[in-house]
Design a protein around this nucleic acid. Structure first.
Lengths: 174, 174
DNA sequence: TATTGTTATACTCTATAACTATA
DNA sequence: TATAGTTATAGAGTATAACAATA
């Protein structure tokens, strides 16, 4: 039988008395969910924060028809003219094969131009087209707005340290 | 023509002189990639840190044959005995349809038991089996190890504030 | 009519391995 | 042999919409 859901009773130990209340038709009354150790663990909260921030940025960037992933790619190409696909894939930590369809899409839409290197015909070098630069500019504007929102939540005083910790985790965890 | 990749020259403005050096066979010499504003933006660093931490935890939890996602699900069921699938999906912010195959898998492997509610035959209530509790225990041990690694990077002094900021982002961004 | 959970389906992002063309 | 990039393919994780059973 499973009529009521027992609440976690670690604090008071009133075994079996604290049921998840439901109406006579079984609907929950919004008894809060117990997250246990997830509530204070870094890993879980890191994931939740990242997902929320990513979704918010997704919504913003949808307005100009690009995805967050495209934004990082365009920025890296813009900042490193002539970068190769392998270098690019190393820079954002993905396999080169994952980059192929992305670059293909950017080329097809006229945002990126791809030329063979003169002295190594295996290698492509990537550059933004004028159209690509324009898209990058508006995505950057969009990202700055997003960053301002984040800054307001974090507070200017803590921001630097916060980013420093994030970098440290990215670089040094295992 | 695209023989050398021009380096971003914002600092010195030596237009065209700083090429990405390559050997005569075209291999790069490890000129560092310029990340531009990505280097200090919260959004990008949040993503990088989360991915690194997630992967590290994935490797740990693979040793006991579970994925990070399963861990959150098991914890929530363990902490909220009798929780329904809809409540569960709300608690970790996914659609209920995404939960179906997960719960199915956990039930099939004997970690979770699923019963219809007496007073609402539409609703399932979920509970851990003894086997499920055992798996949760070893996953929790594994997660605590991971958390200790993160704590070492963050530092005990900054940890609380760091988590507080993460929670704030997750709850309040947009 | 509304809600719980399932199904069918599809999309995004990613990786591995085998391949090609060049070196 | 080794490297740059492509292809074929697969897997994880997610969502939407239509649906059946129940309320």
């Amino acid at each position: 039988m499973c009529r009521f859901r027992k609440r976690d009773t670690r604090v008071h130990g009133t075994n079996g008395t604290g049921g998840r209340r439901r109406g006579k038709n079984g609907e929950a009354f919004g008894l809060p969910v117990n997250f246990g150790p997830l509530a204070y663990w870094v890993g879980f909260n890191l994931r939740m924060a990242q997902e929320a921030a990513f979704q918010a940025f997704s919504r913003h960037s949808q307005e100009i028809g690009e995805s967050p992933g495209r934004f990082a790619t365009l920025t890296l190409i813009g900042r490193n003219p002539g970068i190769s696909q392998t270098e690019l894939s190393l820079a954002n930590g993905r396999d080169k094969s994952s980059l192929t369809p992305v670059v293909e899409d950017l080329v097809r839409r006229g945002l990126v131009e791809r030329k063979r290197m003169d002295n190594d015909r295996r290698t492509y070098c990537l550059n933004l087209t004028p159209a690509g630069k324009k898209v990058l500019t508006s995505m950057t504007r969009c990202a700055r707005r997003h960053e301002r929102n984040l800054d307001q939540l974090i507070g200017e005083r803590d921001r630097k340290k916060f980013v420093r910790i994030l970098k440290k985790i990215a670089a040094e965890i295992e």
